[in-house]
Simulated assay, not measured.
Amino acid sequence: MKPNHKGSARLFKNPFLEKLTRTHIALPISIFLTIAVGMLYYGITHSFINILEAIGFFFIGWLIFTLLEYLAHRYLFHMDTDTPLKARLQYLFHGNHHEYPKDKKRLAMPPVVSILYASAFFFIFKVIFGTFVFGVVAGILFGYAMYLFVHYIVHAYPPPRNFLKQLWIHHSIHHYKDPEAAYGVSSPLWDYILGTMPKRSR
């Protein structure tokens, strides 16, 4: 799909649903950072976890998020579009972003959808981690907020003249050169591990 630097896709005929698909990036980032801090505070002050456990499991959650980000981007957002339903879903989830990568209000899922995902993560990871869930899910939500921040700035601003420039290069390769590589946005970690680092020529 050829990227268009201007404009925005129309996803729904219903104006209310269409409006729900747009959000200023500051809103979801603020929501998830607040929830992450609140979970750590609640878990520590109610003695579900101590400070060292909170720190350790926070970083475990952040690492888990980077893997979830990679897997979702690679296998869900870039799913095979071999049926009309899959093609429609892929376009709603991600295809519209590849067509209009400069559409700043479509760089995050609507907060309502994201909160539903966050709630599901809490109950799933509570089964796995027990009371350590307060640290793990705080790390996941922090990771998601960082992903949204990185994704926004690499589309909205020119790259800096420092080592962070590699994030801009990595994501630009995914958008404009090889959409089947460079799936990591906030970090190329899993691209290195799982063999989807793009081949770059000088």
Rank of each mutant, 00 (worst) to 15 (best):
M1S: 14
K2G: 15
G7M: 09
S8L: 12
N14D: 15
P15I: 05
L17M: 13
E18C: 02
L20R: 13
T23N: 04
I25G: 01
P28A: 03
S30H: 05
I31C: 04
V37C: 08
Y41M: 12
T45K: 14
I51R: 05
A54D: 13
F58I: 03
F59A: 02
F59N: 07
F59M: 09
I60R: 14
I60F: 07
G61T: 00
W62M: 04
L63T: 05
I64Q: 02
F65Q: 00
E69D: 06
H73V: 02
M79F: 10
M79Q: 03
D80A: 08
D82P: 04
T83E: 12
P84Q: 13
L85G: 06
R88H: 09
Q90D: 07
Y91I: 05
L92W: 14
F93W: 10
H94N: 12
H94K: 09
N96M: 09
Y100P: 00
P101F: 01
K104E: 06
K105I: 07
A108K: 01
M109V: 12
P110H: 09
F122R: 04
V127K: 14
F132A: 11
G135W: 00
V137P: 00
A138K: 01
Y147L: 03
L148P: 01
I153G: 01
H155G: 15
P158I: 05
P160D: 05
P160N: 11
R161Y: 11
N162I: 08
F163I: 15
L164W: 14
H171V: 00
I173T: 11
K177D: 06
P179R: 04
P179T: 07
E180I: 05
G184T: 09
W190M: 04
D191M: 10
D191H: 04
Y192M: 11
I193F: 11
P198R: 02
P198F: 03
P198G: 06
K199E: 12
K199L: 13
R200Y: 08
